[in-house]
Every structure is written in C-alpha cells, then in structure tokens.
Simulated scan of single mutants.
Amino acid sequence: MNGLSHLDDQGRARMVDVGDKAVTARRARARGELRCTAATLEMVRAGKTPKGSVISTAELAGVMAAKRTADLIPLCHPLALSQVDVAIAVEDALPGFSVVATVRTEGRTGVEMEALTAVSVACLTLFDMLKAVDRTMTIGAIHVTAKEGGKSGAWEQI
C-alpha cells in the first residue's frame, strides 16, 4: 500500500471500506469567506440587491450542498446527516461575508467534506447573487476549523 487510502496497491482509485469502523457521533465545522466592496455590503444590508435575500438563499444552498456531497466529490461516502447549519455574517473588516458550516452525523466516517462543501457552495451562491453589482469579489480561506468523532478524537483550530 502506498499510504493513500483512496488508492489500491496498483494505484487505482477506490472508495475506502469503512464497514469495520465503529459508529460514533461525528461533527465538523468549516469556514470560508467572500470578500466584496463596502458598497456591496451596504446594498445587502439595505435589502436592495437585484436577486433578493442574498444571505438566506446562500445559507439554504449550503445546507442543500452538504446533503449532496457524495454526488459531487468522487469516492465520498453518502452519509445520513443529522444536522447541517450554515451561518453567514456580514464582516465589515473584510469587507465581505464569513461563512461557517457545522455538520453532524452518527456514522463510520467523518463529515469534513460535507462541511467544506456547504461553505464552498454558500460562497458560490453569494457570488452568483451579487456578481451583477460587484465584479471584484473573491472567495477564499475555506478550511476545516474543527472535527470530533472517530478514533482520532476531537480537533479544533485555534
């Protein structure tokens, strides 16, 4: 074996067998951001964006995306998620939006990919809904900030 769990001895891609792993409570949190102009933030605050409720639509898109992660990422296990929470906050200091997703399940494999997918799609949705008013936007800093469950235990980025 080459040390990469998604490759067999011949280097072919495979889905990892998690059937012998213990079912445990698992949680992951991820974060990302969309940077934009201060004028764009004011437009969102005032509810004057051309496509409507930007934040609630992006939060819902993130939840929906987490549920479809196995359809989007090759070799990801389909999971029965017990919670997906996506929270978007206006951040004047960026300026832009911070996006945080928390995902939970009881299972044999973690939910980091689901949390990352939720954040990514929420950011993409913000971008899509605001691109008509701000062409300078950037998406970035998407990363896992915490995970719990499984034999590796809890981890949190400080």
Rank of each mutant, 00 (worst) to 15 (best):
V99M: 00
F127I: 13
Q83S: 15
L81I: 00
T117G: 02
V119C: 05
M64N: 12
G62T: 14
F97K: 00
R108E: 13
D85V: 11
S98W: 00
L124R: 09
A93F: 07
A122Q: 14
E91F: 02
A66T: 05
E114L: 03
S56R: 13
L60T: 14
Q83K: 15
V119R: 07
T117N: 00
A89Q: 13
E106M: 12
A87K: 15
A65Y: 00
R104L: 13
E59T: 12
H77S: 06
A115W: 01
A65H: 02
E112G: 02
A61F: 12
V121L: 12
G96D: 00
T117R: 01
L124S: 12
I73Y: 00
I73W: 04
V100Q: 11
A115G: 11
A58M: 10
V121Q: 08
A115F: 04
G107H: 00
A80P: 05
A58L: 12
T109W: 02
L79V: 06
A115C: 08
A101K: 05
F127M: 15
M64K: 11
A80I: 11
G110L: 06
D92R: 03
V119N: 10
R108I: 13
F97Y: 09
L72V: 04
A93Q: 04
L94W: 05
A122P: 12
I73K: 07
V84N: 01
L75P: 14
L81Q: 08
M113I: 14
D85C: 06
V103L: 04
V86G: 01
V99D: 08
T57C: 11
F97H: 01
T117I: 02
T117S: 05
T69M: 00
P78Q: 10
R68P: 04
F127A: 14
V63Y: 12
I73V: 03
T102G: 06
V63C: 07
S98F: 05
A93E: 07
V99E: 01
V119F: 06
H77Y: 03
E114V: 01
V121Y: 09
L124Y: 12
A122E: 11
V84H: 05
L116F: 00
V103R: 03
S120G: 09
E59V: 13
V84S: 04
T109G: 04
A118P: 07
S120R: 12
V121E: 05
F97R: 03
A93D: 06
A89D: 14
Q83R: 15
E106V: 13
A89E: 15
V84T: 07
L72N: 08
L79K: 05
Q83Y: 15
T105R: 05
L79M: 01
L126Q: 14
V103P: 05
I55Y: 11
K67V: 10
Q83C: 15
A61I: 13
R108C: 09
